[in-house]
Amino acid sequence: MSKIVRTIADLFFPFVIVFGLYIVFHGHLTPGGGFQGGAVMASGFAMYAISRRIEHKALSKNIFSIIESLSLLMFAGFAAAGLMRSFFYNFLANSGLLFGETVLFGSNAGVLNTGGVIPFMNIAVAMEVASAFAIVVSCFILISIYKVDK
């Protein structure tokens, strides 16, 4: 792509990633969550990769495949960690540990340090969705480079 597109993509890439992370980490307080924040982060990766039209080392498919598998394992692991009561039992909620603060009943602004395992699951799903879309985009870019141009 042209120099203008590359400059604007470089300029906007960190802001898109930070906005996606904001949606993910506030998933248990505000509208949004893992899927939506992961899609926003993946659009940032796609913008960067398409503007460069190369497979960047930091955005390679191998790393994203590993992240995808590990985040699915992390999601299933947090579900299985509550097996002392039941599958998907929220064992961290109201426990006083990380993300374990008690919330007040009714409509309130909310505290970030609540939610139990829900923030961890949001992060896992976000990593999976972001790496999935990044894999698709980098596959298509590779095919377009090797099959269409040559």
Binding site: L29, G33, G34, S69, L72, G100, V103, G115, I118, N122
Partner: peptide, 30 residues
């Protein structure tokens, strides 16, 4: 709010009460 500690009830249903459905979605994506 009392059981899951999440203010967003949609998130609480998606990741806690109906978490098995979300696990299936993640597997489909994989």
């Amino acid at each position: 709010q009392e059981q899951t500690g999440a203010n967003n009830v949609v998130s609480a249903v998606l990741f806690d009460y109906r978490g098995l459905d979300t696990l299936g979605e993640a597997t489909v994506l994989f």
